[in-house]
Simulated assay, not measured.
Amino acid sequence: MDCPDCGNEQTRVIDTGTSADRTSVRRRRECQRCSFRFTTYERPEWESLQVKKRGGTIESFDRQKLRAGIERAVEKRDVTETTVTSLVDDIESELQDREARIVSSSLIGELVSENLRALDKVAYIRFVSVYKTFSEPQEFLRELDAVLDSELDDFEAPDEPQ
């Protein structure tokens, strides 16, 4: 492991433990040349998630790619970075909890859609318009109507007492 400060190859492990999420090993290291201390995290390769794309190709799960998609959907909305991080953590955790190490991109899209619908309706519409590859304005309008109908159901006045 190269020192991130001076680039020296000679570092030693001074402490080892399990990460807070218990999915990786945390190691505290120290450079033997400059005494710079840093932390590394090791995750077993066999535990990494794989994503099966629509075209049939399989690639490694990319947390940053998931985050970028969510950030595009919530752009200029009142959604904090902390909320986005929490959403990404929740989705990744849900995927990790599954038995299968290969998950479909459509499953990831559905999880993001569900979470965004509960979080911000505009971000949800933005996301599904790309995820579901709307090609006609009518498709967009149908989805928007479904969101608006559910909003109206939420705001209906309770029955008046008789």
Score class of each variant (00 low, 15 high):
Lys52Leu: 10
Asp90Cys: 03
Ile70Gln: 02
Asp2Pro: 07
Ile58Ala: 00
Leu87Ser: 04
Asn115Arg: 15
Pro158Asn: 09
Gln50Trp: 11
Cys31Lys: 01
Thr80Ala: 11
Phe36Gln: 13
Thr80Ser: 15
Arg54Cys: 04
Asp97Thr: 09
Ile108Asp: 00
Asp153Gln: 12
Arg98Leu: 15
Leu95Thr: 08
Asp15Asn: 15
Phe127Val: 00
Glu81Tyr: 05
Gly7Glu: 06
Leu116Ala: 01
Asp90Pro: 00
Ile108His: 02
Tyr124Glu: 01
Arg142Trp: 08
Ala146His: 08
Asp154Cys: 04
Leu111Glu: 05
Gly56Gln: 01
Val122Trp: 03
Tyr124Thr: 06
Ser104Gln: 10
Ser19Arg: 10
Leu144Cys: 13
Ala68Cys: 06
Gly55Met: 01
Arg22Ala: 14
Glu59Met: 03
Val112Asp: 02
Ser60Gly: 14
Gln138Trp: 13
Leu87Asp: 02
Arg63Phe: 07
Val103Glu: 03
Arg98Ile: 08
Gln32Tyr: 00
Ser93Trp: 05
Asp145Glu: 15
Asp145Ile: 14
Phe127Gly: 00
Tyr41Lys: 05
Ala68Trp: 09
Val88Met: 07
Ser105His: 02
Asp120Lys: 01
Phe61Tyr: 13
Ser35Leu: 12
Asp90Val: 02
Cys6Trp: 09
Ser60Ala: 14
Ser113Asp: 06
Val51Cys: 00
Ile108Val: 14
Arg28Cys: 06
Lys132Gln: 15
Gly55Cys: 08
Thr23Asp: 11
Pro4Cys: 12
Arg37Phe: 08
Thr57Leu: 08
Glu42Arg: 07
Ser93Met: 04
Leu66Arg: 05
Glu94Phe: 01
Phe134Leu: 08
Ser105Leu: 03
Glu81Asp: 11
Ala20Phe: 11
Ile91Glu: 05
Val103Lys: 01
Ser24Ile: 04
Thr80Cys: 07
Arg63Pro: 03
Tyr131Phe: 15
Arg22Thr: 13
Ala100Met: 11
Arg63Asn: 02
Ser48Gly: 12
Val128Pro: 04
Asp89Met: 10
Gly56Phe: 07
Lys132Leu: 13
Ser93Arg: 09
Ser93Val: 00
Ile102Glu: 15
Ser113Pro: 04
Ser150Met: 04
Cys3Tyr: 12
Ala157Tyr: 08
Asp90Tyr: 02
Ile91Met: 05
Asp97Gly: 12
Gln32His: 03
Arg28Gln: 12
Glu59Trp: 09
Ser86Thr: 13
Glu71Arg: 12
Pro44Thr: 07
Asp159Gly: 11
Arg98Val: 04
